[in-house]
Simulated assay, not measured.
Amino acid sequence: MKNGEIVQARNVYERAVEKLADEEDAEQLFVAFAEFEERCKKMERARCFYKFALDHIPKDSAKDLYRKFMAFEKQYRDKEGIEDAIVGKRRFQYKDEVRKNPWNYDAWFDYIRLEESVGNKGRIREVYERAIANVPPAEEKRYWQRYVYLINYDLYEELDAGDMERTRDVYRECLKLIPHEKFSFAKIWLLVAQFEISQLNLKGARQILGNAFGKAPKDNIFKKYIEIELQLGNIDRCRKLYEKYLEWAPENCYAWSKYAELERSLAETERARAIFELAILDIWRRDWWRDPNLYRRLPRGKPIGRTENLILEFSWFGESMGNKDSAFAEDV
């Protein structure tokens, strides 16, 4: 075949692909085009066309195409070609799995890891975006738990691509999608807040955590927010946060104890004592009717729960301050 005929033939194939690529029998056209390039000794063109075709034809309709591609690679293989063939086979498999079930998040994770191993940033982003577009079909937490792990998308954007604004947009879109009135994930709120802190946007982090208090208050969120403000030396903010924490969970002995511990660390003895007394008064009101002998047992027996531990802690606090009368130190 002369050069002029080769160019004309290639032009005909290219026009055919443009018009017939979506037809049911397009596989035969793709195979014929690839074999044409192979006969013309244009191995890289043939290889590229095989890969292009495999990316655009559903697996069920591309069995012959894939078989021909593998035969091509075996004949003209090199190390890079073999690796590409393996990647292509796995990509083919994952694309078919997620096409059949878009909510198979484990298949999406495998697909994403494959693309990350290849390192094509454009393809990685494309697969991530296709994955997170498949929002769980029901507002039940068990359906959302695997989906939420796709937040790794943000970690990729932030750490690898270095696109901070895009990271921020996807984080916030994730928060919008989760039906917080039914369930939520403290980890997501904390990840978003930590991201804002890493960007030196303290105001943004506080806004995120404040929204978490209103929409989905959880122990871990209160603890982390208090930890952040304590590291910054904002004691008054810590006090306000402990107050909100205890408004939300007045039975939380850990919160009462840590609040008192904060005041004690600041040498605010009277504040610490008042917090202990208020805690025990509150516990007394709630627990006395369930066990009238609770406090009488403490000096003689081992603690059996957080409530008793808090009372003993107050006792030890009173003794350390030299005031045994206010601590439950003696058998009553």
Rank of each mutant, 00 (worst) to 15 (best):
Tyr156Thr: 04
Thr269Cys: 10
Ala193Phe: 06
Glu140Asp: 13
Val332Arg: 08
Phe328Met: 10
Lys100Cys: 13
Phe195His: 02
Tyr242Gly: 01
His56Tyr: 07
Lys59Val: 10
Lys244Ile: 10
Arg39Asp: 15
Leu241Thr: 00
Arg296Thr: 15
Val17Thr: 00
Leu278Ile: 11
Lys203Cys: 12
Arg90Asp: 08
Arg130Met: 12
Tyr225Glu: 05
Asp55Arg: 09
Phe52Ile: 01
Ile57Met: 02
Arg142Pro: 02
Ile86Pro: 05
Ser198Tyr: 06
Leu298Gln: 01
Cys48Gly: 06
Tyr143Val: 04
Thr269His: 05
Phe222Gln: 00
Leu294Ser: 06
Phe276Gly: 00
Phe109Pro: 02
Trp284Thr: 08
Ala212Glu: 00
Ala327Glu: 05
Glu261Leu: 12
Ser257Arg: 10
Ile57Pro: 01
Asp106Cys: 07
Leu266Lys: 04
Asn309Ile: 10
Thr167Phe: 05
Arg297Pro: 09
Asp169Asn: 14
Glu319Phe: 12
Glu139Asp: 15
Ala260Pro: 02
Ala329Gly: 06
Phe72Trp: 06
Ala16Phe: 05
Gln199Trp: 10
Glu37Cys: 02
Asp154Gly: 12
Ala329Val: 11
Asn293Ser: 13
Tyr156Phe: 06
Asp25His: 09
Arg285Trp: 14
Gly4Tyr: 14
Gly81Trp: 08
Arg146Met: 15
Glu270Tyr: 11
Lys182Val: 06
Trp189Ile: 03
Asn293Val: 13
Lys240Pro: 03
Val12Tyr: 10
Gly318Phe: 06
Ala161His: 07
Trp316Met: 12
Ser320Gly: 04
Cys48Lys: 11
Asn211Leu: 08
Ala272Phe: 05
Arg296Leu: 14
Pro102Gln: 07
Glu251Gly: 03
Ala34His: 00
Ile86Gly: 08
Leu191Ser: 07
Ile221Tyr: 00
Gln207Phe: 12
Leu29Trp: 06
Leu232Tyr: 06
Val192Thr: 09
Asp106Ile: 13
Glu23Leu: 12
Asp331Ala: 11
Glu5Ala: 10
Ala34Trp: 06
Tyr76Arg: 03
Cys174Asp: 03
Lys240Trp: 12
Gln194Ser: 14
Leu175Arg: 01
Asp169Pro: 07
Val31Ser: 01
Glu27Leu: 02
Lys223Cys: 09
Leu150Val: 04
Gly233Thr: 03
Glu115Pro: 01
Ser198Gln: 10
Ser61His: 13
Leu159Asn: 13
Trp189Glu: 02
